[in-house]
């Protein structure tokens, strides 16, 4: 029986030839945090990490995966939503309907892993996921908040709570100049 290495566990699965990784994750392994949005690698809702790199799982045949390749889904990113990207997302209330957000978060966590201090251009290039609710400006702001937090903790600062990150939210919002 074929195996997939998902979120640190080696799991058996059964699927017909050509079944995309997305549908094995969702229908065989019960990992429904990874979403179907288009099936043609256009929208990014199905983004997972394969050995730390963001990959669109809707066009990746499960059978192409070796058991040595480490797949991480949103469920396996952190046990309780405590990755700095997730915390920044919570602090800035990024999600609206939320359907695209697992993919957004997987793309963003791969980005900050590769580029710990991403520029706006880096964010433009990496974050090509589609969001129909229109969370893009908060996605961008949250990546900057997370990058700043990650840099601070790297130099020994105590990790901030979501509510503390939230305090910098007002600064972020006023970078955009919004006022109520």
């Amino acid at each position: 029986m074929p195996k997939l290495n998902v979120n640190g566990k080696l799991l058996d699965y059964q699927a017909d030839e050509g079944t995309p990784l997305l549908w094995v994750l969702r229908e065989q392994l019960g990992l429904t945090g990874t979403k179907y949005g288009c099936g043609i690698a256009q929208c990014g809702a199905c983004t997972v990490h394969i050995d730390g790199v963001a990959v669109r799982s809707c066009v990746m045949p499960a059978a192409a995966m070796k058991a040595t390749q480490k797949i991480t889904t949103i469920e396996g990113l952190t046990p309780n939503g405590t990755h700095p990207i997730q915390k920044a997302w919570q602090a800035l209330d990024v999600p609206q309907c939320g359907f695209c957000q697992s993919g957004m978060i997987m793309a963003a966590t791969a980005l900050v892993k590769e580029k710990p201090n991403p520029t706006d251009k880096d964010i433009d290039d990496a974050m090509t996921n589609i969001c129909r609710c229109g969370t893009y400006n908060r996605v961008r702001a949250a990546i900057h908040v997370a990058a700043k937090e990650m840099a601070a903790t790297k130099t020994g600062a105590k990790p901030k709570k979501v509510s503390e990150l939230g305090k910098s939210v007002l600064d972020i919002q006023h970078i955009d100049g919004s006022q109520a």
Partner: peptide, 10 residues
């Protein structure tokens, strides 16, 4: 409803 939407649990 934010936290669930950042963890895939929603």
């Amino acid at each position: 409803d934010t936290v669930e939407k950042t963890t895939g649990k929603q």
